[in-house]
Design a protein around this nucleic acid. Structure first.
Length: 826
DNA sequence: GGAGGTGACGTACC
DNA sequence: ACCGGTACGTCACCTCC
């Protein structure tokens, strides 16, 4: 039979010692299809140069004899072929060694130790990735597939009848066809419990939201049945809740089951409670229960239904460019959906009254609703990344940036006839981590001041465009200078001054990056044409991907790690940056600012057209795909000195554009570890100064704030300081205020884990006066009066002092009355 | 016991 | 452990006199 098909979920199973892929997807009528397929399993052995054919033949005979009995499997080398391939851009003669089971390739590789063989590769990419590459069955692409219908057949041990799909097919042929519309069936869920520790407390309720249903299942009933909202369904106890949940998910049978932090909370919790009650949480299409990966980051998988923890995708793809200070559902929803969680203060269920329970239902339902909407909003982006990297949705949605880059490379090697480099293991990895890091970008010390008419230029995807233009990668790195080669600027490498050279013959990594680079440009244009929160996010997501290629090359866990490449890229970054600064200055402009890939200068009397013409001239002098672009014209810009000393502070500035929009970088305003009052005060001061160029009003404003502080008219919430607990309490060598606050929380039995934002304020300490801030720490719930001196001297005044210094306003005189106090003391 | 330097730490920029 | 280096600023901690 023949049908159209879009692959979504990939699983693997063994049957009679061989590997099979089981792919769940849809046809265009939304029927669920299960496809069973296999593919050749092999690894590569790279031969040393100039091995005579007779020796190779002999070697092949020996390799063909290899047999293994491991883990209850009989596995053997089935055949050996000889091929001409590339490895790291260099032509090599290789043996393609076919074996029975992918899981045994590693053991087989260990047996292939012969003097003629240089390296063994291609046994460590995982069967699913291998299968996708081999059969070109790419996730989220449309195919016309042809095969044999499995109808309760005993082939594969009756696997077809064990899968809840409309039909199951043994694949024969696939043909890529043009994209069709696919709208995944999405179901969001969220649970509420009394305890945060997995499985420790009861699950009080669970909510489910799709575009068809809105439902809360609970056993916590209101005393008056008539009060029950329509979306609430009562069950008799927690056990029944688990059964109803499972039944409901199975009935809806979504493509994606989505949660927020659900990899590490909701699904493991449901499973733990189900185990307690001996209930089967058989959510999988094959009736299986969720499977949890071991390791630091928990992942929760359901066969056939793609479980997505949307938090993980947001963290990788957008977090860097988000305004939200935490990745809590509340803040993320506020930023992307303009909606927040329902206002409800969670208490232990024993302390809730009737009204509370009604609010709690609503709160629970709304969390699923927000999660549902987040997935809907980001589905186009997730889809785009899956198509670019060709990794399945389940894996991609959980991956970090290095994985995005690496998957993209691995899935495209064949176009270059390349065989894959191996994953690094220890001690190689720890060696890489221990080497001295290479010198990074150049940051110009800015000239402090308030300026008018500031122009900003920046390079488009600078690192990536350098990699492409100078053909930099592990494979193209030359051992010594060649006549036709790219030469890096002189750089310091492991304590030695040196240069690196790269071949002019295009390497596969630079070639591949060109595509990411183009995609990034495309999404940037799209955003400029139609600026909204989503085009912005998409643009940023590809900005992240493009920017992380260089990071990937310098990442110790990367297959294509190359410190020489990384050092060269950065040397070019410094060179192009400094050259640009010099050219702008030579043209007669006053350069105020520069950081890595950008330069800011004063327009002076020149028109915007003249600036654009100058930019064009600069671009004509740049090599390859490198491009400098106009970041913007700004009405005013503010740079300050460092807190200590008189030199300009790097990575700290504020700009206002012609529309009156502000761009604030590095200031305390944008730092979450300062109290709100300090941040808002500074923000307002910056606004007053940038909007009107008048510091007088700003000074009056600060005086008002100071007065309020002194008269204790500031609400405590404005004074809370938030600091993240980055490691476990016992690991801290220095006991800072937030560690003290965390200790207090622990003593009070407040749940606490790594990564939590710790909240505290600094209080007056009556009697004993200590110099240490940490001895004045109080939790927000603790009674106490805020410490006036601390908030003035350590929060408010430091945040604005440097700004007023620009205008020669003497803070000592105005706010500290230093001389008088000194006199009064005696 | 105060000054001043240094290290640990968290956070931001690109 | 899961992209990198550069930079600022606070607070604790140490040394020195």
């Amino acid at each position: 039979m023949k049908t159209n098909f879009i692959p979504l979920d990939y699983q693997t199973f063994d049957y009679q010692g061989r590997n099979y892929a089981k792919i769940i997807g849809r046809d265009e009528k939304d029927k669920r299809i299960c496809v069973i397929d296999s593919c050749p399993v092999y690894l590569w052995a790279i031969l040393k140069e100039n091995i005579p054919q007779s020796k190779i033949n002999n070697l092949i005979k020996q390799i063909e004899k290899i047999k293994l009995d491991t883990k209850g499997r009989h596995t053997k080398v089935e055949k050996v072929e000889i091929h001409n391939k590339n490895f790291l851009d260099k032509p090599v003669k290789v043996l393609k060694i076919f074996a029975t089971n992918y899981k045994d390739l590693h053991d087989i590789a260990d047996k292939i130790v012969f003097p003629e063989i240089e390296k063994r590769r291609g046994y460590d990419i995982g069967f699913i990735t291998h299968y996708i590459i081999e059969k070109k069955m790419h996730p989220l692409n449309w195919y016309e597939i042809e095969g044999e219908l499995l109808n309760n057949s005993m082939e594969f041990g009756g696997i077809d009848s064990a899968v809840d799909a409309d039909f199951c097919m043994k694949l024969k042929n696939i043909k890529k066809i043009e994209d069709k519309k696919f709208s995944p069936k999405i179901l969001a869920y969220d649970i509420e419990t009394d305890e945060l520790q997995i499985g420790k407390g009861e699950i009080l309720m669970v909510s489910l939201v799709s575009d068809q249903i809105k439902k809360v299942i609970t056993w916590k009933k209101l005393s008056d049945e008539k009060e029950k909202p329509d979306y609430v369904e009562y069950v008799k106890d927690e056990g029944e809740l688990l059964e109803r949940f499972t039944k409901e998910v199975r009935k809806i049978s979504p493509d994606f089951l989505v949660g927020y932090f659900s990899d590490e909370f909701d699904l493991p919790y449901l499973k733990a409670r189900a185990e307690k009650f001996h209930i089967k949480l058989n959510l999988g299409l094959d009736d299986s229960q969720p499977k949890f990966s071991r390791g630091i980051n928990l992942t929760s998988r359901i066969n056939g239904i793609i479980h997505i923890d949307i938090l993980k995708f947001i963290r990788t793809a957008y977090a860097q460019y988000m305004k939200s200070e935490t990745l809590s559902l509340n803040e993320v929803a506020k930023e992307f959906l303009g909606d927040t969680k329902k206002n409800f203060k969670i208490k232990h269920s024993s302390q809730l009254n009737e009204n509370n329970w009604k609010e709690y239902y609503e709160y629970n339902l709304h969390d699923s609703f927000l999660t549902f909407q987040l997935l809907e909003k980001f589905w186009p982006d997730l889809k785009e990344f899956v198509k670019v990297t060709q990794e399945p949705i389940f894996e991609l949605s959980r991956a970090g940036l290095s994985r995005y880059v690496e998957s993209y490379i691995l899935h495209n090697l064949e176009r270059f006839n390349e065989i894959p480099e191996k994953r690094p293991y220890n001690p190689e990895m720890s060696d890489r981590r221990n080497v001295k890091s290479v010198e990074g970008a150049f940051v110009l010390e800015p000239k402090p001041g308030l300026y008018e008419n500031v122009v900003m230029f920046d390079f488009t995807s600078m690192h990536t465009s350098i990699i492409i233009s100078k053909n930099i990668s592990k494979g193209t790195l030359l051992e010594k200078k060649e006549k036709e080669s790219y030469e890096s600027p002189e750089l310091d490498f492991q304590g030695k001054k040196t240069r690196f050279y790269f071949s002019k013959k295009p390497g596969f990594i630079p070639e591949l990056l060109k595509e990411i680079f183009e995609k990034r440009k495309h999404f940037k244009e799209e955003y400029k044409k139609n600026p909204n929160i989503i085009t912005k996010a998409r643009n940023n997501a590809f900005k992240v991907l493009s920017a992380s290629v260089h990071g990937y090359i310098g990442f110790f866990g990367a297959r294509y790690y190359s410190l020489e490449s990384s050092a060269s890229i950065l040397a070019f970054v410094r060179k192009f940056n400094k050259e640009t600064i010099a050219k702008v200055e030579k043209e007669g402009y006053n350069v105020i600012f520069s950081d890595t890939d950008s330069v800011g200068f004063l327009r002076g009397k020149k028109t915007e057209e003249q600036i654009k013409a100058f930019l064009k001239k600069l671009n004509s002098e740049l090599p390859g795909v490198m491009e400098l672009e106009l970041e913007g014209f700004f009405k005013r810009g503010l740079w300050v000195t460092k807190r200590t000393g008189i030199t300009g502070a790097k990575k700290k500035y504020a700009l206002i554009d012609e529309k009156g929009d502000l761009k604030i970088r590095g200031f305390e305003t944008v730092r979450r570890d300062w109290c709100n009052l300090a941040r808002e005060t500074q923000d307002n001061v910056i606004r007053l100064i940038l909007k009107e160029g008048n510091e007088k009003k700003a000074l009056e404003y600060v005086k008002e704030i100071v007065k309020k502080i002194k008269s204790r008219n500031i609400p405590k919430e404005e004074l809370i300081i938030r600091t993240q607990l980055k490691k476990s309490l016992s690991e801290y060598k220095a006991i800072s205020p937030h560690v003290i606050a965390a200790r207090k929380m622990k003593e009070k039995g407040i749940p606490l884990s790594e990564g939590n934002l710790i909240e505290y304020y600094i209080a007056e300490t009556k009697g004993k006066e200590s110099k240490l801030v940490r001895e004045k720490v109080k939790l927000p719930t603790e009674e106490g009066e805020y410490n006036i001196e601390y908030y003035l001297e350590r929060q408010i005044l430091p945040a604005v002092e440097n700004i007023f210094q620009i205008f020669n306003i003497d803070f000592e005189e105005i706010f500290r009355e230093k001389k008088q106090t000194k006199l009064n003391d005696f």
